[in-house]
Design a protein around this nucleic acid. Structure first.
Ligand SMILES: [Mn+2]
Ligand SMILES: [Mn+2]
Ligand SMILES: [Zn+2]
Ligand SMILES: [Zn+2]
Lengths: 138, 138
DNA sequence: TAGCAAGATGCGAAAGCTTCTCAGTTGTCT
DNA sequence: AGACAACTGAGAAGCTTTCGCATCTTGCTA
């Protein structure tokens, strides 16, 4: 049950937190901006402030429940943390997001970091392009 | 001479443009934020507005003279366009930046994009970690 | 070289995203 | 139920970046 995840994070189970987690779990698009979540709440008739949405998403991130991504759209997007790392392909026309994992790339990254004496903490790989649908539509 | 690059970009040769290009060329740190450039101008006694710095950097970017990077520091950084693509390692402690190119990664990226029917336009790969110096300092 | 028009500049205002402040409310534990 | 820390909504504020506009320059022409 959702509530347990919230409790395990050391957070009180409140309506905003339940609703926001629910939206992230049930959303078809897996990558939502704070504004997206906020609008979804409004649509559902929930009277929750935008500041709370940001606060909760940040707390969920701190607790490892969600991941924050920085695509080049000007706003962060959030997704449930599946536990497995992955990278992203983003369509510059329609913003469709495709996820992928490539072990060859992961290995090369470790090698490169080591080679330069860096202790890797994280990395971000985003490929921007035009998806098939958008290519067809000209 | 610098002025030619500016002219070739279809821009008038003005003091702000000459100074900003000069700073990018002479800077030890190759990756500067607009604010960094602005402060450098102030230090040199040049009375150039921050808005102009942003405008000029954006124009230079459009002309292919500089590249804009989006590391996760909250502000964009700019560097002279060397003509050769490269990716970045960034130290999360001291912000040191190391550049690298890895053909294996580049190839895998093309393959992945193709595999998902994406026509690649661009990509951004940043590895975040702790550099040797910072690791030593605890 | 003087004059002109397009283009550039600096300033402050404003936009866009995100965080903060604070008074009032709610969840949790006893 | 009562106490208290935690949480919330609303608006103010913070930050980076862009805009609007009156004024100044550059590059060209006569
Ligand atoms: Mn994802
Ligand atoms: Mn670089
Ligand atoms: Zn698309
Ligand atoms: Zn460092």
């Amino acid at each position: 049950m959702d509530n347990q995840q919230i409790k395990d994070a050391g957070l009180k189970v409140t309506r905003p937190r339940e609703k926001i987690l629910g939206i992230l779990e049930r959303s078809g698009r897996r990558h939502l901006s704070a504004e997206d979540v906020y609008k979804e709440l409004l649509t559902n008739g929930d009277d929750i402030g935008l500041a709370t949405v940001y606060r909760v998403l940040t707390q969920f991130e701190g607790a490892g429940l969600v991941c924050r991504r920085h695509f080049e759209t000007g706003q962060s997007v959030f997704e449930l943390n599946s536990g497995d790392h992955h990278d992203h392909l983003v369509c510059v026309r329609c913003n469709r997001v495709v996820e992928f994992v490539d072990s060859v790339i992961e290995e090369r990254q470790s090698a490169i970091a080591a080679q330069h004496g860096f202790h890797i903490e994280d990395h971000s790989l985003v490929i921007y392009g035009v998806c098939t649908d958008c290519a067809v539509k000209g």
